[in-house]
Amino acid sequence: MEVRTIKVFTTVDNINLHTQVVDMSMTYGQQFGPTYLDGADVTKIKPHNSHEGKTFYVLPNDDTLRVEAFEYYHTTDPSFLGRYMSALNHTKKWKYPQVNGLTSIKWADNNCYLATALLTLQQIELKFNPPALQDAYYRARAGEAANFCALILAYCNKTVGELGDVRETMSYLFQHANLDSCKRVLNVVCKTCGQQQTTLKGVEAVMYMGTLSYEQFKKGVQIPCTCGKQATKYLVQQESPFVMMSAPPAQYELKHGTFTCASEYTGNYQCGHYKHITSKETLYCIDGALLTKSSEYKGPITDVFYKENSYTTTIK
């Protein structure tokens, strides 16, 4: 009895394709271990004539594949690729409408935090270190965002349907971005203890939790000093293409032309909904596939993004 075979390709990165001759009487799992086709788990399936010449994702289970996976995804987590594939199996079914010149995501599976993050990423200057993220990001900007969303979920250790947080998501993504040249110098002034300067680099240099107003941050924000008295913390120097200011959701007025974009969060910790506000020729609110415009805006804002380049204080 002759062994019926077909020729397929296996890959971990969709760049390096490895030619395989597979036995049609055995499952993919018996031949390769966990195997995925377009995100779908085909591990328990036997090869079919229609699979001839198709590319299958496999887990990096030998040295060659491990090197290829690390170079593309910059992670050695053995569960990463499987999590990416199972997320992709959902995100490829989502709709990605162009809204006001940006790629958004039609609401499904509690994905409003991903839509808000995706919209924000198209408006701030950011370059990702893992080629996987950078490639998928370019495709997302062009309207094909399924891979990018699935990668975000995998890097953030999230599953489809789980509630997510924009600030946490951005923080994970910033860790995989090139923020080497970003720098922030802060000064804390206390009447009792004097003053202390701190220099922050990388992710810490672009994120701040405690106030939404970048102007206020430049002037000074009140913080408790270690001595128990009130101290003032203010920005001395900022070198970065953008800054992200966050605070627990509270009524906040966004003035046209003073910011790049913002995240609105309605609801409580267990259950809520994100919308995205962007400042173009007027203010726009993007909620999944829905767009509304207004000249002014007041609502429960939790993150505001500002364009920056270089700032030095005039406070002496």
Rank of each mutant, 00 (worst) to 15 (best):
D38T: 09
L200A: 07
V189M: 09
P249M: 04
N157I: 01
V166A: 05
S263I: 14
T211R: 00
L212M: 02
T43S: 14
L17S: 12
K298G: 05
Q238V: 01
Y274H: 00
N129P: 02
Q251Y: 14
L119T: 02
D63M: 06
V166W: 06
A117S: 09
H276L: 09
A132H: 00
K218S: 03
A136K: 02
K183T: 10
L102Y: 08
N110S: 04
C285L: 10
T266A: 01
L88F: 10
T55I: 09
L102K: 05
Y265C: 00
D77H: 03
T75Y: 03
T5A: 12
K93S: 11
F305T: 04
P47M: 03
Y96Q: 04
R184L: 00
T19F: 12
D303Q: 01
I301L: 09
E215L: 03
N49Q: 13
Q222P: 11
D41T: 10
Q98T: 13
G82V: 15
G39Y: 09
G161F: 04
P34Q: 14
P249S: 01
N16G: 07
Q222S: 14
L283T: 08
H74A: 04
A115N: 11
K54E: 11
H256T: 12
F305M: 12
S240T: 01
D23P: 12
T43A: 13
S279L: 06
K106Q: 15
Y252K: 04
Q20K: 15
G288I: 00
G39E: 10
G272N: 01
V99E: 13
K106G: 10
T260H: 05
K219E: 00
N61G: 09
Y265L: 01
V236G: 00
H51W: 05
L17C: 15
F70I: 09
Y96L: 07
A177P: 04
G33W: 00
F128Q: 02
S25G: 12
E253W: 12
P78D: 14
C156F: 00
G202W: 00
P34E: 12
G257I: 01
G101H: 07
A145Y: 01
F148R: 03
P60I: 09
C182H: 01
E125I: 05
T91P: 07
L163I: 02
P47A: 11
L88N: 03
M24D: 07
A117R: 04
F217A: 15
Y208Q: 05
Y208I: 08
Q238M: 02
T258V: 04
N100M: 10
A87G: 13
